[in-house]
C-alpha cells in the first residue's frame, strides 16, 4: 500500500509513477482527449444548422468590449434578424442584463471557477430553446485569451475581439486563440489616435498565426467599421443557409 495516496500500486516517494511489478493488459485508444466535448459540439453544430441559426463564438480578454460590441451589433440588426445571446462569465449576470436591456433573449452561464465555456454548456442552452431560428446566436465566451481556444462549442465561426488599448502585440502573446480565429475584430479603433497601436503590425502578427484571417477595425461606441462586421455576418448567414 502506498504511503503517499493510499493506492495499491504507488510507491511512497515514487513521484506519482506506478512501480507495480504486475504488468497490465494494454488497450489502444488513439482517441482525442476532448472526444466527448467534440461529440457534443458536433451535435450542437447539427442542431444549429437545422434551425438555420448562425452561431458565433466571441472570444476576447476581459475589457476588450465584447458586450458593448454585442449591444451595438444587436441594435444595428434590430428588426431584421432574430438574435439571442449566451453569456459566459465566472460570476454575475451583469452581461446578460445588459443584453436583455436591448430586448433580445440572453442566457447567462456562470462557470464558477472554470475559465471557458464547453460544448455541454451550450447544449443545455440549446435545450432551453435559446437559438433563434433563421437568426444569429452570439456566444460571448469567458473573458480569457487562453483557455477558450481549445474548446469547440459547435459554433459556425470563432471571432476574436482585441482592442486598441490592449496593445498590438497580443496575437503573438496569445497565439493559440488567434490561430483559431475565423475573424479578428480590433475594437475601440476610435482610440487609435491616442494610443501607440500599429494596426499593420497587429494584422501582420495575426496573419502569422492564421494566414487567411480577416482583421477588421471597429468601434462599438463610435460605430466605425460596424458596417463591414455586419456584412461579414450577413455573408456567413448566407453561406450557412446555402449549405442547408
Amino acid at each position: 500500500m502506498c504511503g503517499t495516496c493510499g493506492c495499491p500500486s504507488h510507491q511512497a516517494g515514487g513521484a506519482g509513477r506506478a512501480e507495480d511489478p504486475e504488468r497490465g493488459r494494454v488497450i489502444t485508444l488513439e482517441r482525442d482527449l476532448l472526444a466527448a466535448n467534440d461529440a457534443v459540439a458536433a451535435r450542437n453544430r447539427e442542431r444549429l444548422a437545422a434551425a438555420d441559426t448562425l452561431a458565433v463564438n466571441l472570444m476576447a480578454g476581459p475589457g476588450a468590449g465584447k458586450t458593448t460590441l454585442l449591444v451595438a451589433t444587436i441594435t444595428a440588426l434590430a428588426g431584421g434578424v432574430p438574435v439571442a445571446v449566451v453569456e459566459g462569465d465566472q460570476a454575475t449576470d451583469l452581461d446578460a442584463a445588459r443584453i436583455r436591456a436591448t430586448g433580445v433573449p440572453a442566457r447567462q452561464i456562470t462557470t464558477g471557477k472554470a475559465c471557458h465555456l464547453d460544448a455541454a454548456m451550450i447544449a443545455r442552452a440549446l435545450d432551453d430553446g435559446i437559438a433563434p431560428a433563421h437568426g444569429v446566436l452570439f456566444v460571448e465566451n469567458v473573458g480569457n485569451l487562453v483557455c477558450p481556444a481549445g474548446f469547440d462549442l459547435g459554433e459556425a465561426a470563432k471571432v476574436v475581439v482585441a482592442s486598441v488599448p490592449e496593445g498590438d502585440d497580443k496575437p503573438l502573446k496569445y497565439p493559440d486563440i488567434f490561430a483559431a480565429a475565423d475573424l479578428v475584430l480590433v475594437n475601440k479603433c476610435d482610440l487609435l489616435a491616442h494610443v501607440a497601436f500599429d494596426l499593420e503590425r497587429f494584422t501582420a502578427a495575426a496573419r502569422r498565426l492564421a494566414p487567411a484571417v480577416a482583421v477588421l477595425a471597429v468601434s462599438a461606441t463610435s460605430g466605425a467599421g460596424l458596417g463591414v462586421w455586419l456584412d461579414w455576418l450577413a455573408r456567413r448567414r448566407a453561406r450557412l443557409h446555402a449549405a442547408a
Binding site: 507495480d20 497490465g24 493488459r25 494494454v26 489502444t28 485508444l29 488513439e30 482517441r31 482527449l33 476532448l34
Partner: peptide, 10 residues
Amino acid sequence: DMKIRELEVA
C-alpha cells in the same frame, strides 16, 4: 494533438 494513445490496465 491532444490524444490518448493507450492504457495499461489491470
